[in-house]
Design a protein around this nucleic acid. Structure first.
Ligand SMILES: [Zn+2]
Ligand SMILES: [Zn+2]
Ligand SMILES: [Zn+2]
Ligand SMILES: [Zn+2]
Lengths: 165, 165
DNA sequence: CATGTTATGTTATGTTATAACAATCGTCAA
DNA sequence: TTGACGATTGTTATAACATAACATAACATG
């Protein structure tokens, strides 16, 4: 998995890739990527900053979609079931998944400076979790791994500011 | 760190240890473990099942404490700042910390069968997180590690049931 | 086109958490 | 002793996040 979120990149490419991917994947699975579902996915992919349900709802309302909470929560539920996005539990916000083909739960780096999230799928972390769980005779079903800190880009920026003083 | 939560044990010992520890620690730090703060801590320690803020509030109300939400959230904030408890983000619930002397964020095993939580402090996990973060030039400030599954005891019980069929 | 299933609309409510300001308590020096 | 200050608590209101329940509409299929 590449670290795209924290590096400068052509984000419109992220969006179109994600939407195309979602369309193909839903077609393959014979599930319906309805207009509101697709629009929510597009809105989630507006950037690599996780977005809250009510912010999504406000955008939908502006665009003439139905704007009651169940609308967006149903769309989020569908997209989550299809592995097209993840919820970040520590901030109650949602972020697109770059690798929705195989069911997984990611590990997330959240930058507190730029508010962007990057999904990882580190074998080190997965194995460490497995190992710890096994030591306790614990059988893992799911997990929430959210790491808050500062990304490379924001660290570089703050250093640049420091030196100019 | 021992796995006490998932094993049969004298839980009154957990409670008294936690409260005594909290009293000493607050005295050392010259912060005030006021009645409502201590009572919230006791209620959090009622068992190894994480407890929600509004459930705490209901208990406080029954006991004649003030019962508006800020009361319990302030107590939780204080206790959290002092490292006496942790919030489990994935379930919006709070659990006592067995090792409040040194600031840390734990790794939690949550059993979906018995609803108990066990805090770990696995060096494997910590190192894996560090390693992954470093690979991305990411500087860690805090983290949320919550592993949901089935604990040894509950696995044993379900196997016992299986064999009796 | 009738039927069952899936998706959406609608209203209301449940759950979790904080803002803002007033009143009280504890501490400590004048 | 008092009065000034910061810390704590009381109180009211509201923000933010999420779901229940039931009605209606759209879609697929025979
Ligand atoms: Zn991008
Ligand atoms: Zn993912
Ligand atoms: Zn115990
Ligand atoms: Zn702890």
């Amino acid at each position: 998995m590449l670290t795209t979120a924290f590096s400068p990149h052509d984000h419109s490419h992220c969006i179109t890739t994600a939407i195309n991917h979602a369309q193909d994947l839903c077609a393959d699975r014979s599930v319906r990527l309805t207009p509101v579902r697709q629009r929510v996915l597009e809105l989630v992919w507006h950037s690599h900053q996780p977005i809250g349900a009510y912010e999504l709802l406000a955008s939908l309302a502006k665009e003439g979609f139905n704007s009651a909470p169940p609308t967006v929560y149903r769309a989020l539920e569908f997209l989550s079931e299809q592995g097209l996005l993840h919820k970040l539990e520590s901030i109650n916000a949602y972020v697109g998944c770059c690798n929705p083909d195989t069911p997984h739960q990611g590990h997330f780096l959240l930058c507190q400076a730029c508010n962007q999230a990057q999904e990882l799928d580190s074998q080190y972390i997965t194995l460490a979790l497995k190992h710890s769980a096994e030591q306790h005779g614990f059988e893992i079903q799911s997990h929430t791994i959210e790491i808050v800190g500062t990304c490379q880009g924001c660290l570089d920026k703050s250093k640049a500011v420091e030196y100019k003083i």
